[in-house]
Design a protein around this nucleic acid. Structure first.
Length: 408
RNA sequence: GCGUCGGUGGUAGAGUGGUCAAUUACAACAGACUGUAAAUCUGUCGCCUUCGGGCUACGUAGGUUCGAAUCCUACCCGACGCA
């Protein structure tokens, strides 16, 4: 894996780069499609490719439980297994520490809306009795499988071992994604744990061969001091002079704090290595991240929103099941050249009315068509942002796009 | 014509004297979703409302009762059986 910066965005941390992996080149900034269980939900690789996706991200926890990382290894690695010839990444399972732990059974996401004042209470409320499928232990996390209830203890070493079996081009250190509801004391403890786990991940990775592909993950919640401390420690973590090959920026933010948190971190991380803002991907977040030095994003929103009936347009998101679309025979977005909206193979393209009909009829194709459009929309947006930096018109493009998108 | 069973909110279908504006499901309408426990979840779903409540409703019309979707009578409609 090799990363080159081609151009920097003036007066900011932003940059355009090229990331070379064993399975192909990723032009950055880039949006990574999430394919948790070695599939981008409802899409086949041709559709993923046609949406413009360059790289797909699978998940350690999910693939370890099913079908098992050894099966994926024996298949020839995640890319071969899922018939995706391009670059791949795997997340370490660190997010499941949150989603199956503190967030389990709760209406909580990693991006906190500042209006949720109940989650901003200063003291950590003790909800350790609350049911959860992930329990944090001394040197790892005990997961109770959401599939069959079996118990699995994932340590940093185990996560790295699994990821080596999965065989992606880029892998992540095992971390603890904390809940945005945690207080400073807990965030501090968790951060120390994540830092210890980072070093152990690196040690194990080197033990298993140590090709250049392991990203360390910066945490620290919403706290400036913790974010900066974490960036410094993760950047400096090394074993016999071997450092992380790139960085993930993980954990929870208040939406309003996201830009400062990313900036704090990227001002400290070494410039020459790629940075991946984990799990973030609303259009306004992409501009923010890129302007602040992020090279890679992944997010479930394009596919999840798509499956659930919401699609992106340059004038904002729309819900396809709304009554007004039942007889709207225009495409989801006029001028969009995704394979849902644009004429292909002699057809005229799918209309809003048709997609709405498929959703109402609970047809599988509904989620596919909407996911194709959404993935194309987001991936293409990042490409356009990249191009705007190359052409020295990033800020103009940002204003033009967000004016339409947020006010539409 | 006789007999039996049945007619409940957009639909299916609970309820068989008070706690029923009526369980539930579906449909409808609106919303949520940020390293995927998610093709999922939430809310509304008779009319009006100053959100306290008010009004009209369980085929139709009467009746019994303090009180009826629930009991009685007649009628209308449907299914089945016998003629």
């Amino acid at each position: 894996m090799q990363f080159k910066i081609e151009k920097k965005l003036k007066d900011s941390l932003g940059r355009v780069g090229v990331l070379e992996t064993p399975h192909g080149v990723i032009l950055t900034p880039a949006f990574v499609a999430v394919g948790t269980k070695a599939t981008v939900k409802s899409l086949n690789p041709d559709q993923v490719k046609e949406a413009g996706v360059q790289v797909v991200l699978g998940n350690t926890y999910h693939l370890y439980l099913q079908p098992g990382d050894e099966v994926v290894r024996d298949a020839g690695g995640i890319g071969r297994f899922m018939n995706w010839p391009g670059p791949t990444m795997t997340d370490s399972g660190g997010f499941q520490v949150f989603s199956l732990g503190a967030a389990y059974g709760k209406d909580m996401s990693k991006v906190l809306k500042i209006t949720d004042s109940s989650l901003l209470i200063p003291e950590r409320f003790d909800d350790s009795d609350a049911p959860r499928l992930a329990k944090i232990g001394a040197d790892g996390v005990s997961f109770k499988s959401h599939l069959d209830g079996s118990i699995h203890y994932i340590t940093p070493e185990k996560s790295i071992e699994i990821q080596h079996n999965l065989g992606a081009d880029i892998i992540f250190a095992f971390d603890e994604c904390t809940s945005p509801a945690e207080d400073l004391k807990y965030q501090t403890e968790a951060l120390e744990r994540t830092h210890r786990w980072a070093e152990r991940s690196l040690i194990e990775h080197l033990k298993l061969g140590g090709e250049q592909k392991l990203f360390g993950i910066v945490q620290g919640g919403r706290e400036e001091s913790l974010r900066k401390q974490s960036a410094k420690i993760i950047a400096e973590t090394n074993v016999n002079g071997k450092y992380f090959d790139g960085f993930g920026i993980g954990g929870s933010f208040a939406k309003e704090d996201m830009s400062t948190a990313v900036k704090w971190v990227n001002e400290i991380l070494p410039e020459g290595k790629p940075r991946h803002l984990l799990g973030i991907g609303e259009p306004e977040d992409l501009f923010m991240g890129i302007e602040n030095g992020v090279d890679l994003f992944d997010c479930v929103l394009p596919t999840r929103l798509g499956r659930n009936g919401t699609v992106y347009t340059k004038n904002g998101k729309i819900i396809m099941t709304n009554k007004k679309f039942r007889d709207d025979f225009t495409p989801i977005e006029s001028g969009c050249d995704c394979s849902t909206c644009s004429p292909r193979h002699g057809g005229a393209g799918y209309s809003r009315a048709y997609v709405a009909h498929l959703f109402h009829g609970k047809e599988m194709l509904a989620g596919t068509l909407a996911s194709v459009h959404n993935l194309h929309f987001i991936v293409n947006l990042v490409k356009q942002i990249r191009q705007s930096i190359l052409e020295d018109r990033f800020f103009e493009f940002k204003k033009e796009f967000l004016d339409g998108y947020l006010k539409g």
